[in-house]
Amino acid sequence: MKMKLIGVAAMVLATGAYAQSSVTLYGRIDNGVSYRTGLPSGHLFGTETGGWGESWWGLIGSEDLGDGTKAIFQLESGINTNTGGMNNGGLFGRHATVGMSNSKYGTFKLGNLGAGFLTQDSWDLDPQEMQAYNIATLDRGRVWEQAGNGFEYTSPNLNGLTLKGQYALTNTVGNWNGTNGGPGTDPSNLGAPQGRVDGVKAMYNNHNLELLAIYDEVRDRNGQFSNVYAASREAMVGGTYTWGPLKAYVGYQHLSAPQATLQNQGLTATAVTGTLPGGVTGAPTAVDHEWVGVNYTVSPFLSVTGGVYHANANKGNGNATLYSLGAAYNLSKRTFLYTELGYVTNSASSNVGLGNGYSDYYGPNTNEGGTSGAPNYGRSQFGAIAGIMHMF
């Protein structure tokens, strides 16, 4: 009997050794102030949430299953720290996944991929690291797309190469690509129903060199590519190279939406009569976007960033150029101060603003009830932002 008890105790101890688990609470809070000129109704000075990056909190955990395999989960919620409200469409709109990870075979997740949709991995190519004025500015928030009902696989590191694939279902009876009707999506309704979403990513790291390629598809609720800035195909390539304290960036993005129409952009024929500038022949079905930039580490406490971004839309919708300059100063390992300046110029038939698509919709400023924060056609816009980020 004594030997049996010893054997049972040994089995329990062995099981406990393999079933080690951990749960971590984490997050970050970002608040600041901003100033913007060139708005249709004048200038704006106000508080800002997420000027350097969105505020969030979350839980992440793992359980050791043995033989290099772990069960993993992540729950993450975006926060509007101006109001205390939730971002990203729900309590855990940023992430709600569970899966398995193995050091040899890679990582598999399923659930709400949310802000983990791989187009958001493009921050690796952004000299401003997704601050307020960044690669999302000229594509009106296209890189902020999200995905629910999803599956994700990430390979292990293969001699510097890492691959990732994602596929998100619509969960709609009889409609693989859409959600049985309704208007198309746009960057202002993250978390709302959308059509099928999928993508692949390849990243290569070799000492000072990093190369990245992304291809993804986001369909609207009708299963179509109807809005180049929201429901479209995206191809992105670029790289970075580091020389000591200096890191250089270069990137290219192509957006394609062959089914785009003015109506899919939220405009009706009567609403646009006499309001679109000369030369515009319809909603853009393609946008080409290029950028270069640098990040310079002045000291362990101070870094300076700068970038130039240029985008051109077809169908006569013109081109825009963004110039940005930023700085961050570390007060500690978890707290830093930041500031960024942005200046966007537009050709005569373009009116891209600094609102990343959320407050400066495509089309004349009477679109979306006249709430647009974009400049008028052919005009420029200047923005400045400063704030503090704390991580826990």
Rank of each mutant, 00 (worst) to 15 (best):
L158N: 15
L163T: 00
N356P: 09
S103F: 00
T49R: 06
N312Q: 05
N177M: 01
Y329A: 10
G318K: 04
N356M: 10
F117D: 03
Q381A: 03
Y252D: 14
G78T: 02
H207K: 12
Q263G: 06
T47W: 04
N205T: 08
Y309F: 04
Q146H: 06
H95L: 14
P40F: 07
Y377S: 05
P183E: 12
N157E: 09
Y362S: 02
H289I: 04
Y204W: 09
V272E: 02
G369C: 07
G141D: 00
D360K: 07
V298P: 10
T37G: 15
T24W: 06
T305P: 03
G16D: 09
L39Y: 14
N264Y: 06
N367S: 14
W56T: 05
K164A: 08
R196S: 06
F225K: 11
N351R: 06
Q74M: 12
G51S: 01
G114M: 05
A96G: 13
G370N: 14
Y241S: 11
E145T: 05
L267Q: 01
G383S: 01
M11H: 12
Q265R: 13
N376C: 07
L44P: 02
A96F: 08
G353V: 09
V308G: 11
G357L: 07
P364C: 06
S303D: 15
T69L: 15
A202Y: 13
G244L: 13
V173S: 15
Y343S: 06
L190W: 00
G316K: 08
Q146D: 00
Q120C: 13
G278W: 12
W57G: 06
Q381H: 02
Y358K: 03
D64M: 05
V352R: 08
P375L: 11
E340S: 08
G326F: 06
A17N: 13
T268P: 09
E145H: 05
S77V: 05
V33P: 00
G282D: 09
L161V: 05
Q166V: 12
Y204H: 07
P284D: 08
S232A: 15
N88L: 02
L138Q: 09
T335C: 12
G266H: 03
M100C: 06
G85L: 00
L118C: 10
G114I: 03
L75D: 01
R334P: 09
Q20D: 08
F336R: 03
L113A: 03
Q128H: 15
M203D: 15
D360S: 09
V272P: 02
H254K: 10
L110C: 09
L302H: 07
G116K: 01
V272L: 04
T179R: 15
F108Y: 10
L163A: 05
G89T: 00
S299H: 15
L246R: 14
G342Q: 10
E129V: 10
T297Y: 07
S232E: 08
A260Q: 12
G355K: 01
H43E: 13
F92I: 00
N102Y: 11
A327H: 15
D216G: 05
L13E: 06
V197N: 02
N180K: 15
